[in-house]
Nucleic acid binder design. Sequence first.
RNA 1: GGGCGAAUAGCUCAGCUGGUUCAGAGCGCCUGCCUUACACGCAGGAUGUCGGGGGUUCGAAUCCCUCUUCGCCCACCA
Length: 889
Amino acid sequence: MSEPLAPQYDPNAIEAPLYRQWKADRLFDAGRAGDPYVLMMPPPNVTAQLHMGHGLNNTVQDALARFERMRGRDTLWLPGTDHAGIATQNVVERLLAKEGQTRFDLGREEFVARVWQYVRETGATILEQLEAIGSSCDWTRTYFTLDEGLSRAVREAFVRLYEKGLIYRGHYIINWCPRCLTALSNEEAEKEEVDGHLYHLRYPLAAGGHLTVATTRPETMLGDTGVAVHPGDERYQHLIGTEVLLPLTGRRIPIVADDAVDPAFGSGAVKMTPAHDPTDFDIGRRHGLATIDIMTPEARIAETAPERFQGLDRFEARKRVIAELESLGLLEKIEPHRHAVGHCYRCGTIVEPRLSDQWFVRMAPLAEPALAAYRDGTLRFIPERRGDEYVQWLESIRDWCISRQLWWGHRIPVWYCDAPECGHQTVSRTDVTACAGCGGRVRQDDDVLDTWFSSWLVPFSSLGWPDRSADLDRYYPGDTLVTAPEILFFWVSRMVMAGCEFMGQSPFSTVYLHGTVRDTQHRKMSKSLGNGIDPLDVVERYGADALRYTILAGMTVGTDLILDPTDLESSFAAGRNFANKLWNAGRFIVSNVDGPTRPLAGVRADVVRHEELTLADRWIIARCDAIVIEATDAYERYRLNDAAAVLYRFLWSDLADWYIELIKPRLYGDIAGGDVARAVAVSVFDAALRCLHPVMPFITDALWRRIPGRAAEATIMRAHWPRPDRRAPDEEAVRDFTLVQELIGTIRAIRAEYNVQPGQQVRAIVTGLSPAARRGFSAELGTIVRLARLASLGFEATDERVGGHAALSDGSSLFVPLGDAIDLGRECRRLGDEVTRLRQLIDAQENRLGNAQFTARAPADVVERERQKLRSWTDQAGVLTAKRELLGC
RNA sequence: GGGCGAAUAGCUCAGCUGGUUCAGAGCGCCUGCCUUACACGCAGGAUGUCGGGGGUUCGAAUCCCUCUUCGCCCACCA
């Protein structure tokens, strides 16, 4: 009825058109009957290109979405992108640099317009790329964090938090990226261990002598305004309250006592640079120390320092400071020192702690409900241990610096009065044009908000919040969040906090944290290392299903996925081969079923009744029921690799290698029962395709649609999840048929062992049969004879002696007489030659091991290996000799 | 410095609550096959001190201790 299928599966011809069909038929869109099931996609950067991390993340989500959809839930997989403030601004600034311009040349408005233009041109790419791997997102609800609605949500959240006193502006030390020229949150300053130095400097005391201080950043001494010691430190009691003469600057600075100083570290005296170190800032504030900012935003030495240092890069200045101190005899020593240094998470530049005015969110009050959600079980993590990290972070949470000195993003909704004598500050949901205090001119805060300040609202802002929309009612809170552990703190924890704060409950109940994609050296795949794999390239060469299969089959819960970027074939061929195997199994079944088949269960008269089923039929049905249960269980437990493996084994080994092979005579009409075989084959194939659909959506739908009897518009996406036969499992069929398989396999092994020609028939004799085995062998006699290439299967002992023996697992004995099946003379000669060859090897080896020189001088493991060789050869020779005796040579 | 994870075939990994699918899968390797769905295939085969050492137990890849090696998260000893 349908067009003939090609023997080679061509994913390129199937996948893309099928995706277009699904999309046109609106199969991804939420809004059906059923319990809602909501997956929130971690928004990729709007200008990102698809990489393997996206591939993994979205494959997992898509598998879950498809599974739940088929189980009858109203599935909403909500896609979107974020504006990625720093990253996107950097990209456009680099483009401008090529034209020899900076953003300052354009001015703010013009620059932002340029970024918008860039985003509009490239922005949809990442989402289109997600389509290529089969992502069944609800594209009608796609969001972007700078959309009008989401921007309104950002202002609403800001104003509400401000009004509750949870947002404040403060003058503190923050992490500053001198390259991106903006403040960063603690999470954005990635701590990394580096090998640095600990410099011991001598500060001359005003009263004579000197005090040694230790520092890792000697250049900051230009901004020192004090030295601190521990109040209980007896070495320095007499110095507290006195002064030192700060070298290179000529400043006199006080020595103070503070509990925060660890007397055991270094010399026990710490130089205080309140403008460039958070601890020093705190201590300085307690003791009224001055703050001297000695660096420009670019981290060059500023005009507040002596002239000869001005304009020097911080690391140049470090060298210069050390050189000068050394020449003054004030450098005591330099020790190697390993310590953690913050790096900008966008550009890798070493972060500089910097004193500045920024906006902060007070986090402790927000953290409490987020902790409670985890502790009362409404929020869980997979794998579970990730919950500990979550708790640890929330319990020691620090305030969140949310202002960024960028132009691309949500501008902070605060307006300041221009009039210095008024100084009023207005925080507003809507744009402000006049001062609420004096009616004068206002200007909006120059800074924008951290991108994550919009991302943390996404679970509800993307559904219409702050409006009380129908979507918000139906789809909040969602169910599962699938993401990489890297953004647990950036995004996941904050979403829970925002959800609890603004919606009263966590935005999801399960957080599934998957691993990272790495190369064979376990390095994270990245553009800069050049060790990435382009998922689209894989789709092109192997197909999206092959990509998905490889990802899911290779990924255990909570572990990383290792792929070899230099050898795509070894990584992805398995998936492609499986797709091709499926394709051909489907091709075989479809082409051997010309019309509607009788159903296996039902009330009509034409159903296949149990009595009509052969042992093999009952076996494959029982196996199918079992794998439906196993696969369902695996999906429910997020063990997608188990689901993939179970289905792979069933479809390839059970269905293709065994069942299809042994129903051929029935299908070809050589023996009766063809229509029953067709019904069974179609039924189990159909069920397995459905179970496999979340893993390999394209080929399963392509084949499923071609099963005869389908309506034209039928799609597996709308098929319900298979339900196993609820009757007691047919254990008898499984047991009996397994023994049939064992018998066939054993006969085949004997044939191979004795070099029986493929076309040569042999006899097989089984004695000592259990009733179950006897029953099974009789039921599938034809199958056994055909697949083992037998002339006959007998159950009476024979007095023949030449042939192969084996014991079967039910206790019966198998004998395959070979006297008339092989050329005895030739086989004896072959075995004889082989034994002779082994004897020679054994002699030589015994000589070698008998040589005292060798055993004394060779390494122990080499000797052991040689001994093993000897043992193995001796064993082989024994086996062959026994074989010769059996054959009567 | 604190916390956590991993180590099983040449490679990538399963092995869940100790014991009848316990030593497994895929790839790779060896042997033989173009058997009318599939050579991206079929049949058969080889390969392991389950990281080292100690312990608990009738029994350990599995539980405990310890060591080694890799990896991750957290951290204001300057």
